Simulated assay, not measured.
Amino acid sequence: MAKITINMPDDFLLKISALAEKSDEIIPRVLKAGGNVVLEKVKSNLSAVIGSETKLKSRSTGELEEALGVSPVKKDSYGNYNLKIGFSEPRSGGESNAKIANILEYGKSGQLPKPFLKPAKAKSRKACIEAMKNKLESEIDSL
């Protein structure tokens, strides 16, 4: 029976081991880079739909746009890292920012939907992945 032995370069093995040791530091930075790309697209879409195509003058206070942000990266019980883009609460008028965003996205009786989240997700996907790839490569190069 034939036998083969492959030796990996030492510098490659050192980088892989350093990457494994620092993955808990690197992964949140990579996710944050991608999250910022998506956040910017959501913000621009939200700004475009607020007050557009209304019968009456817009009553927008800008509070919904200010509440939009990125959560800190957290690790769930399965060991997966998560990052969320959403609205902080509470709102000054007693309403929920999430409720108002939902009404904008899907509409209600007498108000047509003005989607801003779903199109942002679709249009920023490639740019988000590229930003995360670039950040990961720069993190690996800095090891």
Rank of each mutant, 00 (worst) to 15 (best):
A98S: 15
A33K: 05
L56E: 14
I16C: 10
S60T: 11
K84E: 07
T5I: 15
E63G: 08
M1Q: 14
S92K: 14
I85R: 05
K108E: 14
K15T: 09
I100P: 04
N7Y: 07
S77I: 01
G35K: 01
A131Q: 07
K126V: 10
S138Q: 13
K22T: 02
M1I: 15
S138M: 11
I4C: 07
K74R: 00
S109L: 14
Y78E: 08
I27H: 03
I6K: 05
A33G: 03
I103C: 06
D24T: 00
F87M: 08
P9A: 09
L14S: 05
E130I: 10
G94K: 11
E137R: 14
M1G: 15
G69F: 08
P90G: 07
G62T: 06
P72E: 13
S142L: 09
K99H: 12
N45T: 01
E53W: 05
A127D: 15
K55G: 08
V37A: 01
S47C: 03
V73H: 02
E95L: 15
K15L: 08
G35A: 03
I100H: 08
N82Y: 05
L143S: 11
L143C: 10
K15S: 08
A18R: 07
A67Y: 08
S88H: 13
K99C: 06
K74Y: 04
Y78V: 00
R59M: 09
S142E: 10
G79Y: 01
G34K: 03
D24V: 00
S47I: 03
K43C: 00
E40G: 00
L19T: 05
I129L: 15
S17Y: 06
E65A: 11
S52Q: 13
N82F: 04
A120T: 05
E89H: 12
E66V: 02
N82A: 03
N134G: 11
L68A: 02
M8P: 01
L136E: 06
T61V: 08
K121Y: 13
K108W: 09
G107I: 07
K15H: 06
G94L: 12
D11G: 01
Y78G: 00
K32N: 06
V42R: 02
G86P: 05
V70I: 13
L143Q: 12
L117E: 04
R125L: 14
Y81A: 01
S17M: 08
E40P: 00
S52A: 13
I100M: 12
I100F: 10
I4H: 11
R59S: 13
S96L: 14
I85E: 06
E139T: 04
G34R: 02
L68N: 02
M132V: 09
